[in-house]
Design a protein around this nucleic acid. Structure first.
Lengths: 222, 222
DNA sequence: TTCTTATTCAAGTAGGTACTTGAATAAGAA
DNA sequence: TTCTTATTCAAGTACCTACTTGAATAAGAA
């Protein structure tokens, strides 16, 4: 039977995941890794940090058991250890939404004003997909699409949306999706599309939430 | 539309709750506050820290919006800001259980070997309560019982269990509960009771989980 | 073998965190 | 008013964290 020292050590261990998640750069890494595995180089570019620093963050995730890595030739691919990590990240975001007073301002500073964009829920999209009167665009980077996407979605990474506008069938409504509620890719895509006269909406939250809801997924290998 | 600086600031804000929860002492505070409001002095005694240090931890919880405080005379009572905080704390524990390899050892070092103790689930207890053939003991400190407890439970704080053994009706089985899975009060109580020849089991997890499940609660003011 | 490239390691720095000690508030009691 | 008590504030210290820079690995290509 332990005393205070043992209790302190136990609780320190219980919060280790929070200590690791408690850094904006690592949270961005988790947000990207929730889409599927990525190499260190790609991840460093995503979060705009040096390779060395990104590597150190990733090793911290590894040591805490929140991520795994596998070697493939000269590259090392990292991925999340389990759905529990995604759940914790979602739970953390929800707490922030409920309790951080200044969050709205920070969201607006990053994603801009979303009032002009309409959204569609997962359930609505499912219904529309069954009716077949909707085109779904996955506007995340290609490797994330390859690691898993909504069945039938077209991969049109945000930088290509403008130049590939005519590939997108006319007439039917367009639903764009990306990484989740704090990703701006789908917002941008919807603005470009509506600016071109199309009817486009964004899927509220993104692919990880679709997957977490147990909905069907399509892969295209790597 | 923001760039990386705005994204960094947003994600730093999103993880603020994790930074605050990412400390064993503050986690212990949250574990106690999940039972109901307490004064700074009581909390300092609970976590075996100085008043000044405890006060600083509490203010950190306050600033992050995870806790609230109210003054009553010369005392200041802290409480959790919302059920979302408890959910985050539970989610964090679950992640640790899934991913921290050495957790089992730390649990055993603090709570000892639980193999000899039998537990009962909430649902089983509900059933037994309806049948009326069970005595429920709340072995948490008195103020926590006062702030809310399982209906019909007797308040017998752990230090009193030994001396008040004969108050507990003979014959029927005894169920002891406390703060949650990482609290040792119910374990200790069950060991004392079975050592005295009674049939006693512990409720798996504790009062906050009972409350979170939406089950009925009884108060006795303060 | 040598060269290239992705990743990690090692050392250093600036700033943050957890705790201590002792003084300052602020409410109630005498 | 003065005294008491719970809480907070302020300043100091030891340790930890995030990042940088440059060197070391380790796999594959030439």
């Amino acid at each position: 039977m332990g005393g205070q020292k043992e209790k302190d050590e136990l609780f320190d261990a219980l919060v280790e995941a929070a200590r690791v998640l408690g850094n904006g750069r690592r949270a961005q890494l988790i947000d990207v890794l929730a889409q599927g595995e990525r190499s260190v180089e790609e991840l460093a570019a995503e979060i705009h940090q040096s390779m060395a620093n990104t590597s150190q963050h990733l090793q911290r995730l590894l040591r805490a058991g929140l991520a795994c890595s596998r070697r493939s030739g000269t590259r090392i691919y990292y991925s999340l250890a389990s759905p529990a990590v995604e759940r914790l990240w979602r739970s953390l975001r929800e707490t922030a939404e409920a309790h951080t007073g200044e969050l709205d301002g920070l969201v607006r500073a990053y994603v801009g004003d979303r009032a002009d964009l309409s959204t569609i829920t997962r359930d609505e999209l499912l219904l529309r997909l069954r009716q077949g009167d909707v085109v779904v665009l996955d506007v995340r980077p290609q490797p994330e699409y390859a690691a898993g996407h909504i069945p039938g979605a077209l991969s049109v990474p945000l930088p290509d949306v403008k130049s590939r506008l005519r590939e997108v069938p006319q007439g039917s409504e367009i639903v764009a999706y990306c990484r989740g509620p704090y990703c701006v890719y789908a917002d941008e895509a919807v603005r470009l599309l509506t600016g071109d006269g199309r009817r486009a909406v964004r899927l509220e939250d993104g692919f990880p939430e679709w997957k977490a809801a147990g909905l069907p997924i399509e892969h295209s290998g790597r």
